[in-house]
Design a protein around this nucleic acid. Structure first.
Lengths: 192, 192
DNA sequence: TTCTATTTGTGGACTGAGTCCAACAATTGC
DNA sequence: GCAATTGTTGGACTCAGTCCACAAATAGAA
C-alpha cells in the first residue's frame, strides 16, 4: 500500500524529492505507521532487490548440493546467476534507476552498502568454510570482488535502454573473469 | 583543530555516539564553523584515506608512463599498491576502525560508498579509454571488483592486530586474482 | 593610518530522517 | 460480554545538514 504510493511519488518527484510524510499522506496513513512497515525510507527502493536476494542463501545451498565436486567459486557463480534470473528487462528495481538519477543521495548509498556487505558476509562464510583456515583474506576478497562485479553489471544493465535483455547475461559476463582468477589462484576446493 | 577534538571523542564515545556539537564545543568553535571545514561529519573518518586516495590519479598516470607495453590491468594493480604503500601498521584510518566497531552506521556507509564509487569511476575511465568501445561492462566490472578486493583487504588488515604489517601486502594478495582473471579474459590491451 | 573588500566565524531558523512513547482503536480468543 | 494482543496514531525529541544574514578579522590599497 505504501509501496504503490511511493512508486508514484518517486516517478513524479524522484526519491530524494519525496518525504515520508508525502508518502504516508497519499497512502492515507500516518507518518508513524510508515516505520511499522519499513525501517527506513530507503527500504522502499530495495523491495524488489531484497526479494530476489532472499533467495540467494537458498540458491547457494542448492548449487552446492547439485554440483558434484566443483569448486566453491563455481557454486557462488552459479547461485548468483540463478538469483539474477529473476530480473528480466521489464522491472528494474527502484534502487538502480534512482541511483543513476541522482548519484549521491546519502541514504541510498548507505542502504546499498549495507545490503552489499550482508551478501558479502554470506559469500565469505560460504567459501571460507570450504577453504582451509587462514583463508579469511582470500574469501573476503573474492566475496566482495565478485559481488562488486555483479553490482557493476546491474548498474550497466539498468542504464541500458528498454531492450536491455536479462540481467543474468550482464552479470555472467562481469563475474566470469573474477571467478576465473580466483579459480586458478586458489584451486582445488570442493563445494560439497 | 577539529580533527584532534574529534579523534579524542571518537576514542571516548565512538563515532556514532559523538555529535558535531560536542566536537565543535571541545574545539572551541561554533557548530556552524564545522561545516566551513568539513562537508559532513563522516568526512572526519576519511581524512587519512582521502589524503592517500588523492595520490591515486597521479599514481595511475605515473604507472601508465613507466610501464612500457603492459596491460591497463597491470597499471591499475601497480598504482593501487603504490597508494597503499602510504599505510603502515601504525595509523589505521578512523573509517576502518569505526566500521568494525559499529557495523552499520548510516552516514559511515554512505560516505564509504561514495568514495568507492568515485575511485571506481576513475578506474573505469582509465581502463575504458584503453580498451575498445563496447567495453563499458568489462571496464566497470573490473574497476569495481578490483577496488572491492582492495577494500576487503583493508578491512582484514585493520581487523588484524598491531603486528598487521603493511597494507600493501594484504591488498596485493587480494587483488592479484582479480587482475589475473581480467588479464586472461580481456588480453592484450596496452596501457600507454 | 583609514577606508574598503574579501574572507572567516557565528547565531539562529529551518527541513527531514529516525527514535521513542503513551494513548488509542481493532482484532482475536475465551 | 471481557481480556490480551496487535496495529495505528500524534507528538515530542535528537541530530545531520542547509541556508542566511550579520559580525569580527584581515588584507590590500589609498
Amino acid at each position: 500500500m505504501l509501496e504503490e504510493a511511493s512508486a508514484e511519488l518517486f516517478l513524479e518527484q524522484t526519491y530524494a524529492g519525496t518525504t515520508i510524510l508525502q508518502i504516508t499522506r497519499r497512502a492515507g496513513v500516518s507518518r508513524a505507521t510508515f516505520f511499522n512497515y519499513f525501517a527506513a525510507k530507503s527500504d522502499l527502493l530495495w523491495v524488489d532487490v531484497d526479494a530476489g536476494l532472499a533467495g540467494f542463501p537458498v540458491a547457494l545451498e542448492e548449487c552446492a548440493d547439485a554440483a558434484g565436486r566443483t569448486q566453491a567459486v563455481d557454486t557462488v557463480e552459479r547461485a548468483l546467476l540463478q538469483v539474477c534470473a529473476a530480473f528480466g528487462p521489464g522491472h528494474v528495481p527502484w534502487a538502480l534507476t534512482q541511483y543513476e538519477l541522482m548519484g549521491t543521495a546519502g541514504e541510498l548509498e548507505a542502504s546499498a552498502l549495507s545490503r552489499f556487505m550482508a551478501q558479502a558476509s554470506l559469500v565469505t562464510r560460504f567459501t571460507g568454510a570450504r577453504m582451509g583456515p587462514g583463508s579469511e583474506l582470500a574469501s573476503r576478497a573474492f566475496a566482495m570482488a565478485v559481488l562488486a562485479a555483479a553490482a557493476a553489471a546491474a548498474g550497466v544493465w539498468a542504464r541500458t535502454g528498454v531492450n536491455r535483455g536479462a540481467l543474468a547475461t550482464y552479470v555472467g559476463a562481469a563475474i566470469a573473469p573474477v571467478c576465473a582468477g580466483y579459480r586458478s589462484t586458489h584451486p582445488g576446493v570442493d563445494a560439497g
